[in-house]
């Protein structure tokens, strides 16, 4: 048993793309409205009003992953409840969270250091002297000619 269109495999991805578009078209058709207008209401805030303070933040969004991979990120947090007369009358809560920049510290930084090290070594070649540059061009031209001569 072979696939129904085995000999035309090369157009299959395009047909799949069409299928995706077909699905989209079906979705749009199914939800299409001829008469009624779409009603606009504020986002549901459980009977209250939402503000900028109630919007999900980026660090909150990534928090669960950070907690799942705590072995890698090693997050630390500090929650401080400020109260003057009694711990049961909190006036303000301050929160501080930090995480170990594992990838930066053990990945990008060493790589960056290595690249920078090589680059600063290369700087010797490129000290800004016009004579030196002309010398490089000459040396390169000679090398190429030698190569052509030797190969030919």
């Amino acid at each position: 048993m072979t696939s129904p269109v085995a000999s035309f495999d090369h157009v299959a991805p395009a047909v799949f793309g069409l299928a995706l578009l077909g699905g989209l078209a079906a979705a749009i058709l199914l939800s299409a409205r001829t008469r009624r207008v779409i009603r606009r209401e504020p986002t549901w805030g459980c009977g209250g009003i939402l503000s900028a303070r109630t919007e999900y933040t980026s660090s909150a969004f990534s928090k669960p992953l950070m907690m799942v991979f705590r072995a890698v990120y090693r997050p630390t947090r500090q929650v401080e409840a400020l109260a003057q007369v009694s711990p049961y009358f909190t006036q303000e809560v301050r929160y501080r969270a930090e995480m170990e920049p594992t990838f930066e510290r053990y990945g990008y930084r060493p790589l960056l250091r290595a690249v920078l090290g090589v680059a600063s070594g290369m700087k010797v070649l490129q000290a800004g002297s016009l004579h030196a540059y002309l010398g490089y061009v000459l040396a390169m031209a000679v090398c190429l000619m030698l190569l052509v001569w030797w190969r030919g």
């Binding site: 299928a19 995706l20 578009l21 699905g23 079906a26 979705a27 939800s31």
Partner: peptide, 14 residues
């Protein structure tokens, strides 16, 4: 919802 629907529908063809 439309992309979600399209993705699920086109996945059925695989």
């Amino acid at each position: 919802p439309r992309v979600y629907f399209a993705a699920a529908v086109s996945a059925t063809t695989l």
